[in-house]
């Protein structure tokens, strides 16, 4: 099976290709604004994973898997976990304890918002941890869906 038979129709493919960047940008927005608006790493990561799942559904698992290997997704996920732990450990050396918020008051992400303001450059380590968890969830959920879909297609053969 070369993967052509599991594609959906051209209409579905076009709509999926249109929706994919929009969904991905919305996911990055939710992750980046995790310390300002409702949402955060987990929620934005789930949105981003659903964008990749949309591509998998429309174009077929095999065609997506050629471009986007599940090893790479797994590496992306592990990188997110590594960033989380390393930033947490930096809290021991640069501040008081594990997971301490050592960036408050510094130049990067250190601004404390005034009344009614929501600057992106605030929150200390929270934006970094949000990005790490977002990477983790995007990579992990899409890798799981891709693997399960591959197994299902192999069973049909």
């Amino acid at each position: 099976m070369n993967g052509d038979e599991e594609k959906m129709t051209v209409i579905v493919q076009t709509i999926a290709a249109l929706l994919f960047p929009i969904t991905l940008i919305f996911s990055f927005y939710v992750i980046m604004h995790g310390h300002l608006t409702p949402g955060g790493g987990f929620q934005g990561g789930a949105i981003g994973a659903s964008a990749i799942v949309l591509l998998i559904v429309a174009y077929g698992v095999r065609n997506i898997e050629k471009r986007m290997k599940e090893e790479n997704l797994s590496i992306f996920e592990s990188l997110g976990g590594l960033i989380f732990v390393v930033v947490s450990i930096f809290g021991i050396f640069l501040a008081t304890a594990f997971l301490a918020n050592f960036l408050v008051g510094k130049a990067i992400f250190g601004q404390i918002p005034a009344w009614g303001e929501a600057p992106l450059n605030s929150g200390g380590v929270l934006p970094i941890l949000n990005i790490a968890v977002g990477m983790k969830v995007i990579g992990g959920l899409s890798a799981v869906v891709m693997l399960l879909a591959l197994i299902t297609k192999e069973g049909e053969r």
């Binding site: 995790g34 310390h35 300002l36 608006t37 409702p38 955060g40 997971l99 918020n101 408050v104 008051g105 992400f109 250190g110 601004q111 404390i112 918002p113 929501a118 605030s122 929150g123 200390g124 380590v125 929270l126 941890l129 949000n130």
Partner: peptide
């Protein structure tokens, strides 16, 4: 807000 610098108190609880 003063301790973590984040507007969203829920995020500051979850991540800090």
């Amino acid at each position: 807000v003063e301790e973590t610098g984040a507007n969203n108190v829920v995020t500051s609880v979850v991540f800090d």
